[in-house]
Computed example of a mutant assay.
Amino acid sequence: MPLHILDRLNHPLWPAARAIYERSFPPHGRKPEALLRRMLERGQAYVFVLANEDSQARLHPAAAMALAGPGGSGLIVDYLAVDPALRGQGLGSRLLDELERWALERTTASALVIETEAGAGKENEGRRVFWERAGFVAPDGHVHRYIWVPEPYAAMYRPLPGREGGLLPPPSGRQLFRWIEGFHARAYRGFREEE
């Protein structure tokens, strides 16, 4: 299952990737499509898609998607989702491995960086376990609270092989959130929803 990198939303795989994105993240938790389009056009992010090439392609033309872009010394993985019908098959981990390979070849990033819900609950705990199994570490107990989102978040990172020296000293949770917030600030700067 090859990786496809979308730098425009007019790509034939975008409708299938969008369907995964919309099923996986509630409207208040995802970026509007106009903002995604703008981010891609400006080179601030890319949509990464694992696409099926077997007989199931009609049912599941895209298996997993991620939105990621540079931030600080990391590649910020802003969203990552797997088609609900295909979960539990290792596709999320596979997509992260592909992101790592891409980052090593095409960027100077020293780590993949994510933010995950830090609140209690079975679903949030399951997400944290997924990230830990995928090699992500939380550098400290820092919990971040956004003004516009009631749920607390924690940042995690996965060092890129051979680039660990770029993370010395290891980043703190506050440092990771500076990178994440910088990524978001660049995305939203000057954006109006009606665009």
Rank of each mutant, 00 (worst) to 15 (best):
L13E: 11
W14T: 07
P15E: 03
P15D: 06
A16E: 08
A16N: 09
A17T: 01
A17N: 01
A19Y: 13
A19R: 15
Y21R: 10
Y21L: 10
Y21S: 07
E22P: 02
R23M: 11
S24E: 07
P26Q: 00
H28E: 15
R30V: 07
R30Y: 06
R30M: 08
K31N: 11
K31S: 09
K31G: 03
K31H: 12
E33L: 14
E33C: 09
E33I: 14
E33W: 09
L35S: 02
R37C: 08
R37N: 12
L40R: 09
E41P: 11
E41R: 15
G43H: 13
Q44N: 12
A45G: 04
A45S: 12
Y46T: 07
F48G: 09
F48L: 12
V49M: 06
A51I: 00
A51L: 02
N52M: 04
D54C: 00
D54K: 00
D54N: 05
S55C: 05
A57R: 15
A57F: 06
A57L: 05
L59H: 12
P61R: 03
A62P: 08
A62M: 03
A63M: 09
A63T: 10
A63R: 06
M65K: 04
M65E: 10
A66W: 04
L67N: 07
A68I: 08
A68Y: 05
G69S: 08
P70N: 02
P70K: 01
P70G: 09
P70D: 04
G71E: 02
S73Q: 15
S73G: 14
L75I: 13
I76R: 10
I76E: 13
